[in-house]
């Protein structure tokens, strides 16, 4: 039987209210999206919701460096990824864009430095 789910698209700050009609993991229709990315988001939400992770990592000397996953990772892996990143100590010479964890938890996403270090 088809179900209706209301959700807010988080892809851009416009935050469209989406009405999604789905059956199990099958999305039948998406309404309310102002662009195509909203459709893709709704489908992902109903099959495998993913999020970009942004957090910090410590350097060897105890400085804090901001990092992110360069691709969205499955939502249910966020806390496992946090655990791995928090156990890490990275070199003090890292720069923006450097990879600190490659292919985290086999998701295909790398954890990269976002802080701007002069």
């Amino acid at each position: 039987m088809a179900n209706i789910r209301e959700m807010t698209c988080i892809i851009c700050p416009r935050g469209c209210q989406l009405t999604v009609e789905y059956e199990g993991k099958n999305v039948l229709s998406v309404k309310g999206n102002a662009c195509k990315r909203g459709n893709d988001y709704a489908v992902a939400e109903c099959t495998c919701p993913t999020r970009t992770l942004t957090t910090t990592v410590m350097t060897e000397s105890g400085e804090v460096v901001a990092v992110k996953s360069n691709k969205a990772i499955p939502k249910e892996l966020l806390f496992d990824a946090m655990k791995q990143i928090n156990a890490l100590r990275v070199s003090d010479s890292v720069r923006q864009g450097d990879v600190v964890v490659a292919n985290i938890l086999d998701t295909g996403a790398d954890i990269i430095v976002t802080s701007y270090i002069e």
Binding site: M7, T8, C9, I10, I11, C12, P13, G15, Q17, R51, K75
Partner: peptide, 12 residues
């Protein structure tokens, strides 16, 4: 706040 932040920061 923005609707997207309610969704991804609270509801998640």
């Amino acid at each position: 706040g923005l609707a997207r932040n309610i969704e991804q920061c609270l509801n998640d």
